[in-house]
Design a protein around this nucleic acid. Structure first.
Length: 358
DNA sequence: GAATGGACACAAGAAGCCGC
DNA sequence: GCGGCTTCTTGTGTCCATTC
C-alpha cells in the first residue's frame, strides 16, 4: 500500500529536449570507456583497503544486475571530480564527514550544469560507495544534503499531463489485414507481429518476451514462460487460448511462426531466425516491432512499451476494473501504477459530462 | 556492440491526516 | 496524544533508446 509517491520519480519527456540545449551531457568520446573503468577501479580499491578479497568484491558487484553499469559510471565521474580538487584516494579513507564531501560534489555538478537526473544518480552512487565502505547511513545522508538535493529531485518529477496514446485498434486492423497474406510477410515482419501481439495481449515487456520459452500445449493453446526481473525476479507463466477472430488471434500467429520452420528447426528457441540461423537479438526484436507499428500507421515512432499503454487503455476504456487490470498486468495489488503511467484515456468525455446540467 | 542516459517501477520507512 | 490509514520520500533496480 505504500506505493503512491512513485510517479514523482520520473523525468518528463519534455525535459529531455530542453536539457539537451541548456546542459549538453558531457559525453567525451575518449574518456567514455575510461570513466567506467575508473569508477570500478575506485570501488575495488576502497573495498580492497577495507580488507575484502577479490572474490568477495566480485560477489558484492555480482549482487547488482544492470545497475552496476550505472554506479560505475558515476563513481568514475566522482573520481574525476575528486582528483580535480587535488585529493588523493587515501584522503577518501580518512574522510570523517562524507555528507560534506557529497554535498560539495553535488554542488559542483550543479555548477557545471549537469542534468538533475545525473546529480541524483551521482549522489546515489557515491552514497553506495560509502555504505560499502561501512560508513553508517546518517553520516552519508543528513539534513543539509537533503536540502541540496531538493532542487534536482523537484526537477526530476514528472509533470502530470494529459497525453494521447495511439489506438490499439489501429494495430489490430493492420494485423487483421496481413493475416490473409501471411506468406508474403518477411521473417522480420512476422516476428514483429508475433511479438506485438504477445505484448498487446499479455502486457509483457519486450525484454520479457525476448527471453520467453514458448510451448505448444497441443489443444490449440500456447504457453509462454518467462521471468520478470524488474524489481524482483519472478517466474511468469501465461497461456493464450484462441480468440474468436483468428486473424488477430495470438495462438494462430504463434502457430504460424513455428510452421514456417523446417522440421529440424521446430525445437529451436522461440525467436529463432531461419535465415540467420540464430536467435534474434534484443535489438532485432525491437526493430521488428517498430517496423510493424510504423506499417500500421502509428505516428511518431513510439517506444515498444507503448503497446502496453495502448492495450491497457483500451481495456480500461471497455470498463475493466482496477483489480482486473492489476491482475492482467501483474502489478501488485493496490498500486496505481497503471492509472499513472499507462491509462492514457483523456478527460474530455468527463469534462463534457461535467458541463451538462438539467 | 558496448557505453551511456532517460524513463519507469516498487518496497520500506517517514510524514501527514483524522477521528476519537 | 494515539492508532490507523493515506501520502510522500528515498533507495535501488530494470527497461528502452541513443550515441559513438
Amino acid at each position: 500500500i505504500h506505493d503512491t509517491g512513485r510517479e514523482q520519480r520520473s523525468v518528463s519527456t519534455r525535459r529531455k529536449n530542453e536539457e539537451i540545449e541548456k546542459a549538453p551531457t558531457p559525453r567525451k568520446v575518449d574518456s567514455r570507456v575510461d570513466r567506467g573503468n575508473r569508477g570500478e577501479e575506485l570501488f575495488r580499491w576502497v573495498l580492497g583497503k577495507r580488507g575484502f578479497s577479490n572474490t568477495a568484491i566480485q560477489k558484492v558487484i555480482g549482487g547488482w544486475h544492470t545497475i552496476w553499469g550505472r554506479h560505475r559510471q558515476r563513481l568514475g565521474q566522482f573520481d574525476e571530480y575528486w582528483k580535480s580538487i587535488g585529493k588523493s584516494r587515501e584522503d577518501l579513507l580518512i574522510e570523517s564527514d562524507p555528507e560534506t564531501m557529497i554535498s560539495n560534489f553535488i554542488s559542483q555538478l550543479q555548477a557545471d550544469q549537469t542534468s538533475d537526473a545525473n546529480q541524483a544518480n551521482c549522489r546515489t552512487a557515491i552514497a553506495m560507495l560509502f555504505r560499502a565502505q561501512g560508513v553508517p547511513k546518517d553520516k552519508i545522508n543528513g539534513f543539509a544534503l537533503q536540502q541540496i538535493m531538493k532542487k534536482p529531485q523537484a526537477g526530476m518529477r514528472q509533470k502530470i499531463k494529459e497525453e494521447p496514446v495511439w489506438q490499439y485498434n489501429d494495430l489490430l486492423r493492420y494485423v487483421n489485414e496481413k493475416a490473409t497474406a501471411k506468406q508474403d510477410l518477411s521473417e522480420n515482419q512476422y516476428m514483429g507481429i508475433v511479438i506485438a501481439l504477445i505484448m498487446g495481449y499479455s502486457t509483457l515487456r519486450l525484454a520479457e518476451v525476448h527471453r520467453s520459452i514458448v510451448k505448444d500445449l497441443k489443444d490449440g493453446s500456447w504457453q509462454i514462460n518467462t521471468s520478470m526481473i524488474k524489481v524482483h525476479e519472478t517466474q511468469v507463466e501465461i497461456v493464450f487460448r484462441p480468440v474468436q477472430n483468428p486473424n488477430v488471434c495470438p495462438t494462430e500467429w504463434i502457430r504460424g511462426w513455428y510452421e514456417r520452420r523446417t522440421k529440424k528447426d521446430k525445437n529451436k528457441p522461440f525467436l529463432w531466425l531461419i535465415e540467420k540461423k540464430r536467435i534474434a537479438t534484443y535489438e532485432e526484436a525491437s526493430k521488428a516491432v517498430h517496423q510493424i507499428m510504423a506499417e500500421a500507421g502509428i505516428p511518431d515512432n513510439p517506444a515498444v512499451t507503448s503497446i502496453r499503454k495502448s492495450s491497457m487503455t483500451k481495456s480500461i476504456d471497455q470498463g475493466a476494473t482496477k483489480t482486473q487490470i492489476n491482475r492482467a498486468t501483474r502489478h501488485k495489488k493496490g498500486t496505481d501504477t497503471v492509472a499513472h503511467h499507462y491509462d492514457k484515456n483523456l478527460n474530455d468525455n468527463l469534462r463534457q459530462r461535467l458541463s451538462e446540467f438539467e
